[in-house]
Write a protein that binds this DNA or RNA. Sequence first.
DNA 1: GCGGTATTGAACCGATCGGTTCAACATAGT
DNA 2: ACTATGTTGAACCGATCGGTTCAATACCGC
Lengths: 200, 200
Amino acid sequence: MSGRKQFNEDEALEAAMRAFWHQGYEATSLSDLEVATGLNKSSLYNAFESKEALFVRCLERYAERVAKPLAWELKKPDFHAAITGFFDRLISRFDDPSAPPGCLATMAAMELGQSAGVTAGLVCANLEAQHEAFEARCRQAVSDGHLAADTDCGALAALLVSISRGLAVLNRAEGNSALARQAVAGLLNQVTPAGAPRPQ
Amino acid sequence: MSGRKQFNEDEALEAAMRAFWHQGYEATSLSDLEVATGLNKSSLYNAFESKEALFVRCLERYAERVAKPLAWELKKPDFHAAITGFFDRLISRFDDPSAPPGCLATMAAMELGQSAGVTAGLVCANLEAQHEAFEARCRQAVSDGHLAADTDCGALAALLVSISRGLAVLNRAEGNSALARQAVAGLLNQVTPAGAPRPQ
DNA sequence: GCGGTATTGAACCGATCGGTTCAACATAGT
DNA sequence: ACTATGTTGAACCGATCGGTTCAATACCGC
């Protein structure tokens, strides 16, 4: 009941998430996490069971605090505005110098691959969630008349997932958002041209 | 002059490349490389200067032996066939169980980020090369009348780069090519519908 | 067989890894 | 002030890391 209760778990998680986001899972050592969180190794081990367990918490936090707000853009009633909003917001995160480059979930996907374990499962679930969000939005666009009735929503959604992950790769590699910006421009030209319903 | 000359450098490089491709740069230890190449640690250090130098050689080999043949598909005279050929061939590599999942260059891009060093430069150069190859092909399609005259070829090329890297992420994460296949189908539906010249 | 060389195995280096333990410490409630 | 509790620092564990060295070995051309 009594005793000291300081040390904000939320702040620690945020700091750890950013550390992992900067350097990847393996490259981030417990020492790095100590520095990032300002916590002692013992405290870290005490609060979170292990490095992997901490990383899982960080991935969950990332999905909740970073990925989900992006998906909110898809709620816009106009399909073109929704897609534009999503990718514009993604690009502006790339431009934010306070945000680490790339995407934590994408880094984890490449690093951990399909290795057994909780993390790999989370990575796949994250991918699936993004796919379903896009697919649901595309289906809505079809019933709204913003997309042709015969649109393969699953395929289009997979394409959008692929693009968003590819953008993260581009941003991670070159550090700026130049190429990613071009890619988004290309996307908006080709896939969802302004003026809503696609011809033909 | 005389002496022994066995130990095929080409085979060693191939094996090392596949090892890096499977596990990433950091996660592949010298011991792993010993097992993969069948060479002694001393031999590796003797033939290639260091682990990083070996990795650079592997990246160069990857660009030459894996990436370049993919780009050859772009030489097909019909634009739609060229793009289809590129991505179909990429997908079939994902289906090849003898090929490691994902893409070595993309893994390196995520892992090494924009960290200083030779490798980071190579990764960016690789990205730029792919972008230029796509852009040149798009320009040709414009002059062939396969793409609208006002097409932003740089943007479209960046989009295609982004998609191809995103596909590697998808394949890496889920191990199969299901989602990647869907994404390519979406791409072919939206960006380069069969029947050549895009409407409008 | 002989000489010379490519290759090997093994030992070793300092450093770091994730994980664990525990005594010392600081603090908030009583 | 006392005590219970959260936190800290430091030492330690076994293991592995990339890198280096060197004597022993296997093999080729002669």
